[in-house]
């Protein structure tokens, strides 16, 4: 494992910890899209079914369990927690996320490395992860003001994607048989979706002002 991959995993983990911290400390999930969180839970469940079939390393297995457990915990809190669920911006979180699921499933059935149950689910999870942030970005855009923790959550998620791209570039040059175009193309699409957010995050950081997205 190279340093970029490790930093990517760590920034991914940090983003989830920030989100859990926000929900736990403020007992509020305002500004957070339940639809994006549900999509991530689905992404992890679909991709990490290989926990039962393939073993890569203790590190990989532990991280997979952490990602599945934390994403389910977040969805549970937003839907069921007596206090937290009251702060959910339901009327702003109207993205039709079922269409994303259907489109990604259709694409996975058409484009995958092998037509087996696990491989189709794996491709589906890669495609879905690429677009899962969309409901969250739409929600931020609609609410305009972004609180600190929510802004940092999205920032670290974007950093995770950027590190993974560096990781693929590194692997491309250091490994003899490195070709995983499904991951790489989807990863590039996913990172591109953050470009706009990063731009405004950088502006607010430079001006030392509150993060605001244009209407």
């Amino acid at each position: 494992m190279n340093i970029f991959r490790f930093l990517g995993d760590m920034t991914h983990l940090i983003s989830i910890l920030i989100l859990l911290l926000k929900i736990y400390a403020t007992k509020s999930c305002s500004g957070i899209s339940l639809k994006t969180q549900e999509l991530y839970a689905l992404v992890f469940l679909a991709r990490y079914l290989d926990l039962f079939t393939d073993f890569i390393s203790v590190y990989n297995s532990v991280m997979k369990v952490v990602f599945i457990a934390s994403s389910l915990a977040i969805v549970w809190c937003m839907r069921r927690h007596r206090v937290v669920r009251r702060s959910y911006d339901k009327e702003l979180d109207t993205f039709r996320h079922y269409f994303l699921v259907a489109a990604c499933l259709a694409l996975a059935l058409l484009v995958q490395e092998k037509f087996t149950f696990l491989e189709v689910l794996w491709a589906f999870s890669i495609y879905l992860e690429a677009v899962a942030i969309l409901p969250q970005l739409v929600l931020l855009q609609r609410s305009g003001n972004v609180d600190n923790l929510t802004g940092q959550y999205v920032f670290f998620l974007g950093a995770y994607r950027a590190f993974y791209i560096l990781n693929w570039i590194y692997r491309y040059f250091t490994e003899t048989h490195f070709s995983r175009w499904i991951s790489c193309v989807s990863g590039l699409v996913q990172t591109a979706l953050y470009a706009d957010f990063f731009y405004y995050y950088f502006i607010s950081w430079k001006n030392n002002s509150k993060l605001q997205l244009p209407a």
Partner: peptide
């Protein structure tokens, strides 16, 4: 790539 190492990322 060996079969079992194809999905070695998270």
């Amino acid at each position: 790539l060996p079969e079992e190492k194809r999905h070695d990322e998270l």
